[in-house]
Write a protein that binds this DNA or RNA. Structure first.
Length: 498
RNA sequence: GCGGGAAUAGCUCAGCGGUAGAGCAUAACGUUGCCAACGUUAGGGUCGCCGGUUCAAUCCCGGUUUCCCGCUCCA
């Protein structure tokens, strides 16, 4: 009877350039409660964002999908939740303290950035070449003293005094010396003295490594086995931009897989494939994803690959799969003085396991989902709609229950249905405004199904299910509704694809 | 960090040296009842912040903060 009202929509995508695309996603995210700038009423805080009422749920749903696929789907992987604060020695052992703490200086004309110590050392070499050994020794001595004191003003004076020039621009136009610290630090204890500094973790992985013994023993783990973790990490980025792509406070989903030395490449390939399947299960087209092998490897790795996703600003790293060797456990063994080994009954010997890591940025995953989901459609009748085609199983609002009109007992009937569904799904109930307006509002949020209660419902106890993506409608009985929703919204639909 | 651009209502934006506007959104009432209906009404802005010029600054000038773009950096 109501077929006449429905036009088949022809889903033509309005062309969008990339810059506009990201801007629109940012605006839409704010307008519909996905992501807000942090501290908004105080003009925001650079590179920090808050997740709103729908964003928080979507984020939780992504976490849930990851956790289930990594932990629950594997008999030999467990999950932990380690603290953000960790013993300062951990960051010495991992290499984070020493490798990313050098004072830097920029030349204003060439725009080149230098490590202060290497810049001065070049001058020392220059003096030596010219036979001015005494001058060279004196400069070395001054530099060492100032570096030890972290005296940046003194170091800059030293650079000026010796007339050090930039090799590119020949200019002596230097900025002040700055120290770029990767890690945020905070004061431990209430007195706030310097010797009580602790760091906010720059990666969650170390929380797994330092718990290796605890988990292995308490869980009676047999190699190969994995430890997974989802948690916040903090990095002082030099340039932190592009919305939630690079934030100072962000969340990682990591799994460290402990393997027999020599078998790491087998597992590296295994996880490479598994993780790609995970992304494909969410419906991301294969051409929007690509593997990118690292040519230059980090100090701890013997193989590394990124899964890159085509974000609105181009292909960028979304997830990394790294073969980390035994570097981390060996380092912690040395620094802690505790054995971090495994007795392999087959080989009848002890060894430090090798590690294959999968590490995905949760916020980047979130951005990948909403940037794919956001679509502007031109419909056949000439009107437009904005719809968030989020994979239905992880959509923040699953079902909207809508009485066609606000009288004749329809709202009461609709609330009855809402009360049936609310235990299993996040549901919305709405009775304000015309039905069309309510459908469009749900489209903008990304609600996959709208259940509409009309006058026929009162007669024969059937309702319509309106589909977000196609805008088509089905009619089902209220009795069949719960099963219908369960079939469509079950996370199992995704998990079985991996 | 450097260079460029921007900042006005919840969102998108217009405007002007003389006490602030539109569309959408929000709320109320009426009408309607399956794809962003209509009418009436209401709420919402010290025009990012600080200073200067001026009789008068949202507008001009300087600084500052935040955001965007490019460069630089990036485990």
């Amino acid at each position: 009877m109501f077929q006449a009202f429905f036009k088949t929509n022809s889903l033509i995508f309005a062309p969008m350039n990339q810059e506009d695309h990201l801007k629109k996603i940012i605006a839409h995210s704010k307008e519909y409660g996905y992501i807000f700038p942090s501290s908004d009423i105080y003009d925001g805080l650079s590179a920090v964002y808050d997740y709103g009422q729908h964003g928080a749920v979507l984020k939780n749903n992504i976490k849930d999908f990851w956790w289930k696929s990594m932990v629950d789907m594997n008999t030999n992987i467990v999950g932990i939740d380690s603290a953000i604060f960790m013993h300062p020695k951990i960051w010495k052992a991992s290499g984070h303290v020493d490798q990313f703490n050098d004072p830097m200086i920029d030349n204003k004309d060439s725009k080149k950035r230098y490590r202060v110590d290497t810049l001065i050392e070049e001058k020392i070499e220059q003096y030596k070449r010219k036979g001015k050994d005494e001058k060279a020794a004196k400069l070395q001595e001054s530099m060492d003293a100032l570096l030890k004191e972290d005296d940046f003003v003194g170091l800059k004076e030293l650079i000026e005094e010796h007339g050090i020039v930039d090799v590119f621009s020949g200019s002596k136009n230097w900025t002040d010396i700055k120290q770029f610290n990767l890690m945020f630090s905070t004061n431990w204890g209430s007195t706030g003295t310097d010797d009580e500094l602790v760091y906010l973790r720059p990666e969650t992985a170390q929380g797994i490594f330092v718990n290796y013994n605890n988990v292995m023993k308490s869980g009676r783990m047999k190699i190969p086995f994995g430890i997974a973790q989802i948690g916040k990490a903090f990095r002082n980025e030099i340039v932190a931009r592009q919305f939630i792509f690079r934030m100072r406070e962000f969340e990682q989903m990591e799994m460290q897989y402990f393997v027999r030395p020599g078998e790491e490449m087998k597992w590296y390939d295994h996880w490479k494939e598994k993780r790609m399947k995970w992304h494909l299960a969410l419906g991301t087209p294969r051409e929007k994803l690509k593997f990118h092998d690292h040519v230059k490897l980090a100090h701890y790795a013997n193989a590394a690959v990124d899964i890159e996703f085509e974000f609105p600003m181009g292909f960028r790293e979304l997830e990394g799969i790294h073969s980390r060797t035994d570097f981390d456990l060996t380092q912690h063994q040395e620094f802690s003085g505790k054995k971090l080994q495994y007795f392999d009954p087959e080989l009848e010997k002890n060894y430090v396991p090798y590690v294959v890591e999968t590490s995905i940025g949760l916020d980047r995953m979130f951005l990948s989902i909403i940037s794919q989901a956001y679509q502007e459609e031109k419909l056949e009748d000439g009107s437009e709609r904005v719809v968030m085609k989020i994979p239905v199983e992880i959509a923040p609002v699953k079902v909207a229950v809508l009485p066609l009109i606000r009288k004749d007992g329809l709202p009461e009937k609709a609330l009855e249905i809402f009360d049936k569904l609310k235990y299993d799904y996040s549901c919305h109930y709405e009775e304000k405004d015309s039905i069309g307006k309510r459908y469009r509002r749900q489209d903008a949020i990304g609600t996959p199904y709208c259940i509409t209660i009309d006058h026929d419902t009162m007669e024969d106890n059937t309702v319509t299910i309106r589909h977000r993506d196609s805008m088509k409608q089905d009619r089902v009985s209220v009795e069949a509704l719960e099963k219908e929703m369960a079939d469509k919204l079950d996370l199992k639909n995704l998990l079985t694809k991996i």
